[in-house]
Write a protein that binds this DNA or RNA. Structure first.
Length: 759
RNA sequence: UGGGGAAUCGUCUAACGGCAGGACGCAGGAUUCUGAUUCCUGUUAUCUAGGUUCGAAUCCUAGUUCCCCAACCA
C-alpha cells in the first residue's frame, strides 16, 4: 500500500540519505493499547518490514505517576498478538535517564538550558498567549555555574517538588508556543516502576523523545498529527548536539526525522486513553479486556483476529486528513476473515419448541459439513435429531409480514441439513403467546417433499442441546462521536443465559471462533467452564432481512425529502481599484497598458520585487503579447519557485523580456518557457542560449506528425476507447505527445492534428 | 488576535500539470440448504471564487470550513 510516508522513505533511500530504515513504536505504559495504537503499530512496524529495516519497541516511560509494569506486559502481549516482533532488546526511555541527564548538563554548559524557579502559575503567565509573546523568566540569566550547581542539587534531592525546573533557552516570542522555553526536567518525588527511588527528577517528553530516537539510530520517527507543533522543538533540541559516533554528552548518533500522520477515529468508539481508563476505574465496563472495549485485549476477547485488524489498518490507509472511519469497515474485515476460518454451528438464542411429526425413526443423527461447500474447507460434525427441536422464536410469525421466508401457519421451510417441514399447528398459552409448534416432516429435499421451501432455519435437537450462556455485545456508545460517558449504550451487553447449542461444539476451548449460522460469529469466552460454555458475539452476519424488514412492514411510503439549500456565499473577485497607494497606479498600468488580468496585477502589486521585475522587463522591451506573457509567468511560475527562500535573482528584466519575445514569436512554447525560467532561477544565463542548449525551439509540422504517429501506435487501447466515444482521452494523447516532445510541441496544433487523425 | 496542519464519492483513500481510480457502504441482478458467502452491474466526489496553462484535484491569489498548540502529561 502506498502512502506519503512510504514516498518519503523511498526518496530517502534513493537519494542515499539512508541505507536502512529504523522506526519505533513508543507507547507510554499508562494504559492498554487500543485499535488506534494498532494503526500506529502497523505503520511503524509495517514500514520497517516493507523496507527490510527494524522497528524498536520503546516504553516512553518518563512519568512515574501513571506508569506500571502491568501495562508494559500488556503492551508486549498485544504487539506480539497483533503479529509484530521487535527483536532484542526492548527499549525503555527510563534506561536513558543517566545519559539524558548528561545531555541536559551539556545544554546548560552551552547556555541553551537553565534552571527556572518560577512557580507553575508564574511560568504560565510568563508564557504569554497564542497571540501575545511571552516574557523571559527572571531566572533566564543565571550563570552556567549556578545552573549546573542547581541542577546537580535538584538531582540530589535538595529541593521540594515544584521548586525548580530545567527549561530550554528557546524564544519567548516564538509564534510556536512550544518554543517558549519549554521545561525539560521537573522534580517529582515519586518512585518509578523501573528505576525505583534512584531519581527524583524526571525528563519531559519533548526533551526525552527526540534524544531517545537519536540514541537508537531511528531514521524516521513517525507519530500522530497533534505532535506537528512539537516538531520544531524536536529539531531544535537535536540541533544542539553534534552528530558523531562517539558517545558523549555533546553528541548524538543521528538526526531522525519526525513525520506525522492522522490518528484513527472510529464511529461509535471512544479512543481517548484517559476516558478508557475512566471506564475501567468507574466499572462501567468489566476491565481493560471487556469485549466492548476498543482495546486490543478487549477485541481479542471479543473474537477479533490479528489478521482482521491488520487488514483493517491496510484498508483505511495513512494520510494527514482528520478522518472518522466508519466502524462498519472494521466489521467488514472481521467478517471477511472469520468467514474463512470459523466452523459453522447452529445455536438457538431464544428457543421455541417444535414437535416434528412423521420424522423417520431411522433418522437419529446426521452428518453436516462444517463449512459451506463453496469455501472448499474440510470438516464435518454430527447433528443429533429428535422429535423435539428448538427453533428461533423470531423465525415464526403470525401473521407473516410481506416477503416472509420463515415459519408461519401453513408455511413450508427447510430445517438446515435436516429437511423440509410444514407448520401445521400452533399452540398458544392463555395470554396468546406461542408456546409450541407442530410441524410435519416432509422429506429430506424438495424432490422427496414434493414442494419448495421459502427459507432455511437453524435448529437444535431439544434433548441433545447444550445449555450455554451467550453475551450479545453491541456498540458501547449510542452516538457516532461519543464525547462523554453519559452516551453509553445501555444495551451494549445483553446476556442470554438459556441459549441452546448443538452438542458438537462441546469441548471448544477459550478463544475458539464459530459461526452460529444466521446469527453471526461467536467465540468461547475464558469465563467458560467444562459444565457451561460462555460465548461472546464478535459480530453479526450481514443481515439483508434486517434492512428489508422495515420496508416490508410499512408499505406506506414515506417519500418527500427537501434537499438542503446551501446558502450562497458569493465572494466578489478582487479588483485593482481596491488597492491603495502608489502600487495602485502601477497595477492599473499593468492592466490597461499591457493586457494583464486584474488577478495577476493584484498578485504582482502585493510583491514589490516581482512588480519591479516585471516593469524592468517592460523597460527592456517586452511589449504586447510578450509583456502579458512575462507578467503571467512572473506572477505564477516564478512566484511559486521563489516561495520560501529568496536570494538575489541571477537574472533581470532583460532576460524576461527576451524570454517573452521568444514565446510571442512562436520560437518556443509556453511549456519550454517555464522550463527555461526554472533554469534561469537556478543558474541564470541568457534565455536564447538556454533554448539553444536545450534544442528547444518549437517543432515543425513534419516532426509533429511523426510524433503523433508514434503516440497513437504506442497506445492502441486508448485509441480504440477514444473512437468508442471516450473523447476525454484527447487530453491524454496531448499529454503523451508533450512528454515525448519534451514540451516542444505546439499543443494547439497538435490537438488539431490529433483530432483529425482519430476521426 | 498568533502559529502549525488539512480539505477528493455517504465513508476511507489514490492520481510526474494529461483517462478523477480503488475499497467499504448503498441499489439492482445471478447463484445459494445461512435473507450469509461468492459473482456480476450500477451509483455518487475534486471546499468556494478568480487567475495561469493547449490542458488544473495538482501551480498562483483571495476566501470558507475543520483540526492542533498557552501541563512541571505523552
Amino acid at each position: 500500500m502506498q502512502n506519503f510516508i512510504r514516498d518519503i522513505i523511498e526518496a530517502d533511500l534513493e537519494s542515499g540519505k539512508h541505507t536502512t530504515v529504523v522506526t519505533r513504536f513508543p507507547p507510554e505504559p499508562n494504559g492498554y493499547l487500543h485499535i488506534g495504537h494498532a494503526k500506529a503499530i502497523c505503520v511503524d512496524f509495517g514500514l520497517a518490514q516493507a523496507f527490510g529495516g527494524r522497528c524498536h519497541l520503546r516504553m516512553d516511560d518518563t512519568n512515574p505517576d501513571a506508569e506500571d509494569v502491568e501495562y508494559v506486559e500488556a503492551i508486549q502481549r498485544d504487539v506480539r498478538w497483533l503479529g509484530f516482533e521487535w527483536g532484542e532488546p526492548m527499549y525503555f526511555a527510563s534506561d536513558y535517564y543517566e545519559r539524558l541527564y548528561e545531555h541536559a548538563v551539556h545544554l546548560i554548559r552551552i547556555g541553551k538550558a537553565y534552571v527556572c524557579s518560577l512557580t507553575e502559575d508564574a511560568m504560565r503567565e510568563h508564557r504569554g498567549s497564542l497571540t501575545e509573546p511571552g516574557k523571559p523568566s527572571p531566572y533566564r540569566s543565571r550563570s552556567v555555574e549556578e545552573n549546573l550547581d542547581l541542577f546537580a542539587r535538584m538531582r540530589a534531592g535538595e529541593f521540594a517538588e515544584g521548586a525548580h525546573v530545567v527549561r530550554l533557552r528557546g524564544d519567548m516570542a516564538a509564534a510556536n508556543m512550544k518554543l517558549r522555553d519549554p521545561a525539560i526536567y521537573r522534580i517529582k518525588r515519586a518512585p518509578h516502576y523501573r528505576t525505583g527511588d534512584a531519581w527524583c527528577i524526571y525528563p519531559l517528553y519533548d526533551y526525552t523523545h527526540c534524544l531517545s530516537d537519536a540514541f537508537e539510530g531511528i531514521t524516521h520517527s513517525i507519530c500522530t498529527l497533534e505532535f506537528e507543533n512539537n516538531r520544531d522543538l524536536y529539531d531544535w533540541v537535536l540541533a544542539q548536539y553534534e552528530v558523531s559516533d562517539v558517545a558523549s554528552p555533546g553528541t548524538v548518533p543521528c538526526r531522525p526525522r519526525q513525520i506525522e500522520f492522522a490518528r484513527l477515529n472510529l464511529t461509535y468508539t471512544m479512543m481517548s486513553k484517559r476516558k478508557l481508563l475512566q471506564l475501567v476505574e468507574e466499572k462501567r465496563v468489566q476491565g481493560w479486556d471487556d469485549p466492548r472495549m476498543p482495546t486490543l485485549a478487549g477485541m481479542r476477547r471479543r473474537g477479533f483476529t490479528p489478521e482482521s485488524i491488520r487488514a483493517f489498518c491496510d484498508l483505511i490507509g495513512v494520510a494527514k486528513n482528520n478522518s472518522l472511519v466508519d466502524v462498519g469497515k472494521l466489521e467488514f474485515c472481521i467478517r471477511d476473515d472469520l468467514n474463512r476460518r470459523a466452523p459453522r454451528a447452529m445455536c438457538v438464542l431464544d428457543p421455541l419448541e417444535v414437535e416434528l411429526v412423521d420424522l423417520p425413526v431411522a433418522l437419529s443423527s446426521l452428518a453436516a459439513p462444517s463449512f459451506p461447500a463453496e469455501l472448499e474447507l474440510d470438516g464435518t460434525r454430527r447433528l443429533p435429531v429428535s422429535e423435539r427441536v428448538f427453533v428461533e422464536r423470531e423465525d415464526f410469525a403470525d401473521p407473516p409480514p410481506a416477503r416472509w421466508h420463515r415459519l408461519s401457519p401453513g408455511a413450508v421451510v427447510r430445517l438446515r441439513h435436516l429437511g423440509l417441514v410444514r407448520c401445521e399447528e400452533v399452540e398458544r398459552g392463555a395470554d396468546g403467546a406461542v408456546q409450541k409448534l407442530r410441524c410435519r416432516y416432509l422429506g429430506a429435499d424438495e424432490a422427496t417433499a414434493g414442494t419448495k421451501a421459502k427459507g432455511t432455519l437453524h435448529w437444535v435437537s431439544a434433548q441433545d442441546a447444550l445449555d450455554i450462556e451467550v453475551r450479545i455485545y453491541d456498540r458501547l456508545f449510542d452516538v457516532e462521536e461519543p464525547e462523554s460517558l453519559d452516551q453509553l449504550n445501555p444495551r451494549s451487553l445483553v446476556v442470554i443465559s438459556n441459549a441452546k447449542l448443538e452438542p458438537s461444539v462441546a469441548g471448544a476451548v477459550a478463544g475458539a471462533s464459530f459461526q452460529f449460522e444466521r446469527h453471526g460469529y461467536f467465540c468461547v469466552d475464558p469465563d467458560s467452564s467444562t459444565e457451561r460454555l460462555v460465548f461472546n458475539r464478535t459480530v453479526t452476519l450481514r443481515d439483508g432481512w434486517a434492512k428489508e424488514e422495515p420496508r416490508a412492514r410499512e408499505h406506506d411510503a414515506r417519500p418527500e425529502s427537501r434537499e438542503a439549500t446551501r446558502p450562497e456565499e458569493q465572494t466578489r473577485a478582487p479588483s485593482v481599484a481596491d488597492l491603495e497607494g502608489p502600487v495602485r497606479a502601477r497595477a492599473e498600468a499593468l492592466v490597461s497598458a499591457h493586457g494583464v488580468s486584474e488577478a495577476v496585477a493584484i498578485v504582482l502589486a502585493s510583491d514589490a520585487t516581482l512588480l519591479d521585475l516585471v516593469e524592468a522587463a517592460f523597460t527592456a522591451g517586452a511589449s504586447g503579447k510578450a509583456a502579458t506573457l512575462v507578467a503571467n509567468l512572473v506572477a505564477g511560475d516564478l512566484r511559486a519557485r521563489l516561495s520560501g527562500t529568496r536570494g538575489p535573482l541571477g537574472f533581470g528584466g532583460r532576460e524576461l523580456a527576451e524570454l517573452g519575445g521568444l514565446v510571442a514569436a512562436g520560437t518556443v512554447t509556453g511549456a519550454v518557457a517555464r522550463e527555461v525560467l526554472g533554469r534561469l532561477v537556478e543558474k541564470g544565463g541568457s534565455p536564447a542560449d538556454l533554448v539553444r542548449e536545450l534544442g528547444a525551439t518549437t517543432l515543425g509540422q513534419d516532426a509533429l506528425v511523426l510524433l503523433i504517429d508514434e503516440v497513437l501506435a504506442a497506445h492502441p487501447d486508448e485509441v480504440a476507447r477514444y473512437r468508442a466515444g471516450k473523447t476525454a482521452l484527447l487530453g491524454f494523447f496531448v499529454g503523451q505527445l508533450m512528454r515525448r516532445a519534451r514540451g516542444k510541441a505546439d499543443a494547439k496544433a497538435a490537438e488539431e492534428l490529433l483530432r483529425e487523425r482519430l476521426g
